[in-house]
Design a protein around this nucleic acid. Structure first.
Lengths: 100, 100
DNA sequence: CAAACATATCGCCTTTTTCCGATATAACAA
DNA sequence: TTGTTATATCGGAAAAAGGCGATATGTTTG
């Protein structure tokens, strides 16, 4: 885990919100079918609508969150579904408890 | 706690190192007398030497860490001693566990 | 095949961060 | 008082991040 990069990824209100929304996707993304929610996560378009930022910005935010290990991405057809990576988030918690 | 500002403060290798060094100041700052270490923390000059950055940069880093609640500062004579603020760090841990 | 759709990437400009040297402030010492 | 030491603050140049529109890539549908 590159801790500096992880903290940079978290240094942004929108990206923090995305992570928080993905804790409870059923509540925050009702427009999407339940099945894909549970299986793979939430697709970029739904997250973009909720953020209110441009498509390119949200796509870049999500790929940053993925590079830093905070979410995982699954491509299914023309959609990319993102969900929280609880293991990566646990690594962050451990880093803060042990190294900071 | 302004979580975005806290994560920005942690998005820097040197500032992370400072926090880590202050976990065990006796080991990392042997040049300083034990008494002030335990009482108030470590003074700016000692931290600056260990960082290898300019005096102004380190002073600004420390005041950023203080503004975000991660350390506390105590002025004693011509020295300012910095030490970890365990309460602020606990707030960060709780934020990560509850909000992220 | 072409058109439509979802996402990713590129180029660009603006804003913020990084880090420095110079200078200011404050405390101490002679 | 003057000089010295420790820290803080200011101003600026370079690098990075924020965020956009345009465009490219990949997938589905007709």
């Amino acid at each position: 885990m590159d801790s500096v990069e992880v903290f940079k990824a978290l240094s942004n209100k929108t990206r923090l919100q995305i992570l928080s929304w993905l804790k409870d996707p059923e509540t925050h993304f009702p427009a999407q079918e339940q099945m894909s929610l549970d299986c793979h996560g939430v697709c970029v378009g739904q997250i973009q609508i909720k953020c209110g930022l441009s498509q390119s910005t949200v796509s870049e935010y999500l790929s940053l969150l993925q590079r830093t290990g905070l979410v995982t991405a699954t491509r299914v057809g023309q959609w990319t579904y993102y969900k929280r990576n609880e293991e990566g988030i646990k690594l962050l918690e451990q880093f803060i408890q042990n190294e900071i």
